[in-house]
Amino acid sequence: MTDLPHLFRPLALRGIETRNRVVISPMCQYSAHEGHLEDWHLVHLGRFAIGGAGIVFTEATAVQKGGRITHGCPGLWTDSQIPGHARVAQFALRHGAIPALQLGHAGRKAGMQRPWFGNGPLGPDDLARGDMPWTPVGPSALPVAEGWPVPHALTPAEIVTLVDDYAAAARRAREAGYRIVEIHGAHGYLVHSFLSPLSNTRGDAYGGDLRGRMRLALEIAEAVRAAWPEDLPLFFRTSAVDGPPEGWSLDDTVVLARELKARGVDVVDCSSGGIAGAATASAGQKRKPGFQVPYAERVRREVGLPTMAVGLITHPVQAEAILAGGRADLIAIAREALADPMWALHAARVLGHDTGYADWPQQSGWWLALRDRTSEFYDPAAPAD
């Protein structure tokens, strides 16, 4: 085991074991129909399982119809949505990956445009396409930004229903065959908006001080943990920092992670930003490789909880160094996997773990091994014949 690259060492989490530490992060596709997954999702996610990833996440999946980011986002608020998810989960399992699902509610960012139509509030062109608006919800009646709709502030009774719907969606996820569930508590969506003092100005038990602002996140974690099988792991994605100093901080994230650990959360997935405007910390900033790794490192060190690092991790040597340095336990790959769905298998070769295509699908590995044995490769620097 110790001679394996860290990236390709299995990780045991409750009753499952991953084949490696490569995770395909949830990536919205905006291509569902009335919350139901389509063939696009099976092919899109299936290629990552074939590509050697240890865990493959289905994108943010709404626990309520009004919790979708866009009209094209999937859900698990009704049983009719289970079969589409089951196809994805079963395919991933057949090809050695652990199928995982991110459960969320878009909150005051719900009902927005698909990104290729503008990535903002719905406008006349969207209405002409049939994407009709609905009233978003949040902790307070504060819009995301100027020009965005004012959300309805959830009542205590509506919060009770919301928590129940998270638990119901988790039970459907298990029926579909997923082995990991993650609660989306980042990027300005509903749970994050309750955590941040920039968006939560409530005066009741779900607002005010840090404990009050954490209450919804912790109640959801408790409800999902109770509904989710004891032998299967639960993740939580957090925006470790808001950005502005008066917002949610890394110190707050450490406190939250300790509380989540006490409630049976197994991994904290450390992202950042998104409380206003774009969903992540990317807007208007020049980011450096692995810019969010320090968040995962601190939570892991101070809380003693496994963490997942995400954000501009693109090269296998970079990923290996993060794990070898004890800075995180899992590496989440997102956009780089869109460019290279076989990223995990290519990483194995780069790190000297699988130089003979043994881990590749039989349908392609034998072809590639034969080519390497019998062929010369084009060298653009070589003189022409």
Rank of each mutant, 00 (worst) to 15 (best):
I69Y: 14
W116H: 11
P156D: 01
R114I: 15
R68T: 11
H95P: 04
F91A: 11
A110D: 06
A110H: 07
W116V: 09
P99W: 02
V63T: 07
H184E: 10
A168C: 01
Q64K: 14
G138P: 11
R174D: 07
E182D: 08
L142A: 06
T155W: 05
L127T: 12
C73H: 15
W116N: 07
A97P: 02
S140W: 01
P83G: 03
P139I: 02
V88F: 05
G118Q: 09
K65N: 13
G107F: 05
A100D: 03
D126S: 09
F57N: 01
A145Q: 13
I55L: 05
V160S: 13
G66R: 13
P151R: 08
F57M: 09
G72K: 11
A110G: 10
G104I: 05
T70W: 12
L162Q: 08
G84W: 13
G111C: 04
P139V: 01
R114Y: 12
G104V: 02
E146C: 04
P156R: 02
Y178K: 07
R108C: 10
V63Y: 09
V144Y: 04
L103A: 05
R174T: 03
R87F: 13
G123I: 05
G67W: 11
R87K: 15
P136M: 01
K109Q: 05
P121F: 08
I180K: 05
P151V: 09
H152S: 09
I159T: 07
Q102G: 00
R68Y: 08
A157W: 13
G130Q: 06
L76S: 05
R179C: 11
T58W: 00
T155P: 04
R47G: 05
T70K: 14
R87E: 15
G138S: 12
V144N: 13
V137K: 02
Y178G: 01
G52C: 09
T70H: 10
N119P: 07
Q113S: 13
I69H: 10
M112Q: 15
R179V: 05
F117G: 15
R68Q: 14
E59C: 13
F48C: 06
L76M: 09
G130Y: 02
D131L: 03
L162W: 06
H95N: 12
G118E: 08
T58M: 10
H95C: 06
A169K: 10
D126T: 01
I159M: 04
Y166Q: 00
G46E: 00
D131E: 14
R114K: 15
G147K: 09
H105A: 02
F57D: 02
G52F: 12
A170C: 01
P83M: 08
G96F: 04
G72C: 14
V63Q: 08
Q81H: 15
A60D: 02
R129T: 03
A100N: 02
R108A: 07
P99F: 04
G104M: 03
Q64T: 15
A110N: 04
A49Y: 06
A60M: 12
A106Y: 00
D165I: 09
E146H: 12
S140Q: 00
G120D: 15
V160F: 12
T135N: 14
I98W: 00
I55N: 00
I183Q: 02
G54F: 11
R94S: 14
P121T: 04
R94E: 15
E59A: 06
I183Y: 02
G46N: 00
P133H: 11
F91R: 11
R108D: 09
K65H: 14
